[in-house]
Computed example of a mutant assay.
Amino acid sequence: MIEETDEMNTEHDWTTTPITASLLRGVLDLERTERGVLPHRLPARARQQIPDGQLAMAESQPSGVRLAFRTRATAVELDVVATKRVYAGAPPRPDGVYELLVDGRLAGRASATEGDTLTIDMASGITQNRPGPVETLRFTGLPDDEKDVEIWLPHDETTQLAALRTNAPVHTPPPSGRKVWLHHGSSISHGSNAATPTGIWPALAAALGKVELVNMGFGGSALLDPFTARTMRDTPADMISVKIGINIVNTDLMRLRAFGPAVHGFLDTIRDGHPSTPLLVVSPIYCAIHENTPGPSALDPSAMSEGRLRFVATGDPAQSAAGKLTLTVIRDELARIVQQRAATDPNLHYLHGLDLYGEADHAELPLPDGLHPDPATHQRIGERFARLAFGGRPFTMENH
Rank of each mutant, 00 (worst) to 15 (best):
P346L: 00
E135D: 12
N347W: 06
D13F: 08
A262N: 06
I244Q: 11
L348G: 01
F266E: 08
R336Q: 11
A110K: 02
H349W: 07
T172A: 12
T314P: 01
D29I: 11
M232T: 02
R310S: 09
D156I: 13
Q379I: 06
E157V: 14
A112R: 03
P366C: 13
T328E: 10
P92T: 04
L224Y: 08
M239T: 03
N247P: 05
R387K: 13
R93V: 14
P197C: 04
T136Q: 03
Y98F: 15
V76S: 03
K179W: 08
G64L: 10
I330W: 04
V282Q: 08
A298Q: 09
G260H: 13
S192D: 11
T344L: 05
D6S: 15
P226W: 10
P39C: 13
S221V: 02
D238W: 03
E146W: 15
I126S: 04
A335Y: 08
M232Q: 02
P39S: 12
P275I: 08
H400W: 14
A75Q: 06
V81D: 07
R178E: 14
D6P: 14
Y87G: 03
N292K: 13
S241I: 06
H190P: 01
A258E: 11
I381W: 05
Y87M: 06
I381Q: 04
N129H: 10
A376D: 13
A335F: 10
T251D: 13
D116L: 05
M304Q: 15
T198R: 02
K243I: 09
R310V: 07
L101P: 03
P175R: 11
A237Q: 00
V249S: 00
K324W: 07
G273D: 00
T314V: 04
L325I: 04
N193I: 05
V281R: 01
P278A: 00
A206W: 00
E4Y: 11
N347L: 04
G219E: 03
P92G: 05
V37A: 09
L256E: 06
V76P: 01
R41F: 09
H362F: 12
D300N: 15
D148S: 15
F69D: 06
L256T: 09
F266Y: 15
R384Q: 10
L38T: 13
G219W: 01
P169I: 06
G199E: 02
R130I: 04
L161E: 10
T328A: 12
P94Y: 11
G115F: 04
W152C: 12
I381P: 00
G209V: 00
R70N: 15
A123R: 12
T5G: 13
Q54A: 14
F69A: 08
E291P: 12
M8R: 04
T74C: 12
G315N: 00
H183F: 13
E333M: 12
Y87S: 05
P94N: 09
P62F: 15
L137G: 04
S283F: 09
I244M: 14
S176H: 09
S297H: 05
T277D: 03
A206E: 00
L23S: 04
R93N: 13
R47Y: 14
M397N: 11
A88K: 13
L38P: 10
G96A: 07
G191V: 02
A58W: 09
I330S: 03
T15V: 13
L371W: 07
L267P: 02
P43E: 14
N292S: 15
I337L: 08
T326L: 03
